[in-house]
Design a protein around this nucleic acid. Structure first.
Lengths: 165, 165
DNA sequence: ATGATTTAAATTGTGTGCAATATAATTGTG
DNA sequence: CACAATTATATTGCACACAATTTAAATCAT
């Protein structure tokens, strides 16, 4: 629709930009930037709490999964967290070296790792149990807002997974 | 609303968990995990488009800012993007080595960098101008939903910034 | 004016994310 | 049964994020 050619000729040094391009490429109009910034801020906000458990946020996510279900493979874990072995293998080695997780092998299939919690890993669940409440205070939003935010993130995630490329 | 208590008793091997704890620490109830996953998926979705411009997503954000306003400092850029010099300095050096950005020094204050676009950096705006539209197709959401998502991310971000620890 | 404080960038080190590739075990096929 | 294709992890390399520290320049306070 608009005069793209004209504006970029001008663009390069001194003159008013193409209003369309300018609008669209404006930081304030970028949903994705808001998403990205909010996610970064969220991880930062978790840090002081997770420091007390000697966990990073991705490590905390892995623990959440294992507190729910043990004996799963790296593949299953990756499917739940939308992360691949390139991320998870070193992360799981760190959790193992902290004595929280064991990385066994399946008897049926020598390729697959069987991920379980050590007693310390299990015990850490109790210390973690207050984190969700503390975090809800930090975000300080209404429950309905949080539900709506989660619903929309899940929807966007599903859409992005659907359109693989 | 299934029998969460019953199932988690089985979970751990021997002991019934606190049903409250179990619910709260469940991955499916984590707003932050949705936010985190959506943000990761979003960056992944940008990748094939940004590859054509030889930019990463954070580099694209820097270019968005500089397409709007040049001659700003690293500090100002960091304030806009919520990123610090530890992230931006190496990123800006990469943009400089690609010939997109110049990193001058202020005359008034020798400490501050003055960030400007090279002609190539300016010219890249034209190629980038189609990205927002392509991205909107990938997310495939209604405009109202996107506005709502952005509004809630911005609100959460503001809250998290307000409660500095 | 000078020493202390503040400020802007840069540096260092750790831990992701993820593409690309490698390795090894399992499965499918003729 | 051999052998090609698939699958589960692991490895490598690059680019963030960010805490912590350092360096150097500017400002403040006496």
């Amino acid at each position: 629709m608009p005069n793209t050619e004209l504006s970029s000729a001008v663009n390069t040094l001194e003159m008013p930009e193409n209003p369309h391009t300018d609008n669209v490429l404006c930081l304030e109009n970028q949903v994705c930037f808001s998403l990205y910034s909010a996610a970064n801020a969220m991880v930062r906000a978790y840090r002081p709490m997770l420091d007390k458990l000697d966990l990073t946020y991705p490590q905390y996510l892995v623990m959440l999964v294992l507190w729910q279900e043990q004996g799963i493979s790296v593949k299953t874990l990756g499917d739940k967290l939308f992360l691949d072995s390139g991320t998870l293998t070193p992360l799981l080695k760190r959790l193992e070296s902290k004595g929280l997780v064991s990385r066994g092998r399946s008897d049926q299939d020598e390729r697959v790792r069987v991920l379980c919690l050590t007693p310390s890993g299990q015990a850490l669940k109790r210390e973690a149990s207050e984190i969700p409440h503390l975090m809800r205070c930090k975000i300080g939003a209404e429950l309905d807002d949080l539900k709506a935010l989660k619903a929309m993130c899940d929807k966007a995630l599903a859409q992005l997974h659907a359109s693989i490329d």
